[in-house]
């Protein structure tokens, strides 16, 4: 991607995100996609609660803060009443897949043309690294100190699979957003192909909305701080371990928008 100034990113904001977190990348990709499609001026972002609740600090688009997990409900009403707006949310895995799974399923099933972008770091990041619905088996978190699966927590939920069981959605995709570490001898460099894949998924998701369909993208990202890993190790873990249990996948493309 060439270095362009993305005007829908508010300039000069210090990042509140931890070093090595892909939240910032996701927001930049969203801003760029909105501009490429000419949607930024008529876009409304509905917020979540979690690390993505800080998205409004960076994205220079209209914004409504929703209660934890309820963004799809607000978006449904907004889209029904203002069909010309591009309506999207940036939510976490806890927000969209846990407390808000009901609102997500209901909106997806109705097939309302809105776009849910879910940053899946497999923990509750903002509240300090508790288990989330997508935490993999065996992973230790502050609320699964002996690893998920030793208590009453059950196995992780694959949100893409859950939504795939519904007829309503038009576009469902999972991508890895974490840049891929490549070892060259002692040195580590990164492939940014995952970032480009993520960008294309966002474009496709917005195109699905423009064509009248519900779209959802799950971005597998890191939370090195709460995983208690280094930035590099978290990215290696995502590509080598997480990618096996939660592989990138196009689950639904009813409108032929995927690129």
């Amino acid at each position: 991607m060439e270095a362009v100034r993305i005007s829908s990113i508010r300039q000069g904001m210090p990042t509140p995100y931890c070093p090595g977190c892909e939240h910032g990348i996701l927001l930049k990709l969203i801003a760029r996609a909105l501009e490429e499609l000419g949607l930024a001026e008529r876009a409304v972002m509905v917020g979540s609660v979690g690390c993505s609740s800080l998205a409004y600090e960076f994205l220079d688009v209209d914004y409504v803060q929703a209660p934890h997990g309820r963004a799809p409900a607000l978006m449904t009403a907004i889209k029904l009443l203002e069909p010309n707006l591009t309506v999207f949310s940036v939510q976490g895995d806890g927000d969209a897949g846990g407390i808000g799974i009901g609102e997500l399923i209901s909106a997806a099933n109705r097939g309302v043309p809105i776009t849910v972008l879910m940053y899946d770091n497999m923990v509750f990041g903002m509240t300090g690294g508790q288990m989330s619905p997508t935490t993999p088996m065996g992973m230790t978190t502050t609320t699964t100190p002996r690893g998920r699966g030793r208590g009453a927590e059950g196995p992780p939920v694959d949100i893409c699979d859950v939504l795939s069981s519904l007829e309503g959605p038009a576009y469902l995709r999972r991508v890895i957003i974490a840049p891929k570490p490549i070892k060259r001898g002692e040195n580590l460099s990164y492939s940014f192909k995952p970032v480009m894949d993520s960008y294309r998924a966002i474009l496709s998701a917005f195109r699905a909305q423009m064509k009248g369909g519900f779209s959802f993208v799950e971005f597998m990202g890191t939370c090195n701080v709460n995983w208690k890993m280094t930035v590099d190790d978290a990215k290696v873990y995502t590509h080598e371990v997480v990618s096996k249990v939660r592989p990138p996948r196009l689950c639904r493309d009813r409108l032929g928008v995927d690129t």
């Binding site: 409504v64 929703a66 209660p67 409900a73 607000l74 029904l80 009443l81 609102e103 209901s106």
Partner: peptide, 27 residues
């Protein structure tokens, strides 16, 4: 009068009211 939704719960319903209010429509 152009939007009617049977929500999945009162939680969803009130959040739909929030959405309508946020774009300035009577709900």
């Amino acid at each position: 009068y152009r939007a009617f939704v049977q929500a999945s719960s009162e939680v969803e319903a009130v959040n739909m009211l929030m959405g309508a209010g946020a774009v300035g429509h009577l709900a």
